[in-house]
Simulated scan of single mutants.
Amino acid sequence: MSAKSLCYYLLLLVVYFSLSASSTAASKVSAIIVFGDSTVDPGNNNFIPTVAKSNFPPYGRDFDGGVATGRFSNGRLVTDFLSEAFGLPSSVPAYLDPSYTIEQLATGVSFASAGTGLDDLTAKIASVIPLSQQLEYFVEYKERLKLAKGESIANKIIAEALYIFSIGTNDFILNYLVLPLRPAQYTAPEYVAYLIVLADAAVRDAYDLGARKIEFTGLAPFGCVPAVRTLNHNEPGECNQEYNKFARRFNAELQEAVRKLNGELAGVQVVYAETYSVGSAIIANPSGYGFENVVQGCCGTGLIDLSVLCGVDEPLTCQDAEKYMFFDSVHPSERTYRIVADNVLNNALQVFL
């Protein structure tokens, strides 16, 4: 190879690696910032006066160190797996946990609160943190980040972060489908539409605060969680298909809202993360996903055990949560969360990789 050819070859390599580095940097996620309910709460409820807590055994028994962090599962959540997949820490910390410094929260933080919803009434029912307050905490977080990192670096972290919303189930199973107030005000389609307006407003609020990469998670088939099966008076032990209709209606309207947001907000990329289909697929074919039980939770009797009831019935808790789709009567096991995370990563979040 002549000297001229060698120089040309080296130049091509430099250009190639420069472009590759530029592409990687452009798609890099600086942090995972989370809003939502128990599906993504890593322990914020530990620090507020509510009964909606899980900071005791058997919760967290498969988490690093066997610690019950406040996550409603035996181990990690979807957001923890996503954080790791983006090259960030293997778990997303709770904003209200004083043991974390702003330096640690700079690569990921969750403002989520178990029991909350898009509807502020849902948060009041469970005495937890409403979504509006979570967004206020985010404003506070931004100011803390600027003080710690400087305005330029803080703004870069905020702009390049991935924002995840996982919320909505409690508006139905703790509110509309069990209490009389909202049904007296809204028909079923009207209530779903009302929630979509709130979801749209929350995304716009996050956008105004600097969010540009946003994922909004659709609802899973919550009519099939063990507690709902147990309380299904018409068909005990079976999925409540009326409940699942609410999830499908919400998801369809949320996808339309996402399309609208992308068309109206400059420079934003909002994606819808599908979870209903993967949940349904597991329920239809448990063994295909390595599960032996999809109708009961691992904790206690597995029928209505949740939060403190899991602690009371801890001696009854299953030995191997890997075989169970659900850890308690409402929340998935770590293994289920991993499957959902892989699905979300390989589909909705591909644009951010």
Rank of each mutant, 00 (worst) to 15 (best):
T116I: 05
A341H: 05
Q319Y: 09
I214G: 02
R61D: 05
D205I: 07
T187K: 13
I32N: 05
N251H: 08
D119Q: 05
N262W: 04
R144D: 01
V67P: 00
S91H: 12
A206R: 04
P98D: 03
I157M: 05
Q241M: 14
T187C: 07
I157Y: 12
Q133E: 11
I153T: 09
D200G: 03
G223L: 03
P180F: 10
D171Y: 12
S307P: 01
L10N: 09
A206T: 02
L177T: 02
A154P: 00
L181M: 13
A161R: 04
F35K: 09
I196N: 07
Y289R: 08
T187D: 08
L131S: 06
P221T: 13
L177D: 05
P226H: 04
P332F: 14
D328N: 02
F47I: 03
A106M: 06
I304Q: 04
P42T: 13
S329C: 08
M325C: 03
H331P: 01
F172N: 10
L306E: 00
C7K: 15
A159W: 06
T169K: 09
N234R: 11
L303R: 11
N244R: 13
L306V: 08
R182F: 02
G237H: 06
L231P: 00
A202K: 04
S90W: 11
N347E: 10
A3T: 11
L198Y: 10
E235A: 15
S329V: 04
K156N: 14
S22P: 00
Y186N: 08
R338G: 02
V308R: 15
A348M: 04
A184F: 06
S110P: 01
Y9R: 14
R61G: 03
F246Q: 10
R229E: 02
F291W: 12
L345Q: 10
T116W: 07
G300A: 04
V228E: 08
Q255H: 11
I32K: 09
E160K: 10
L181E: 15
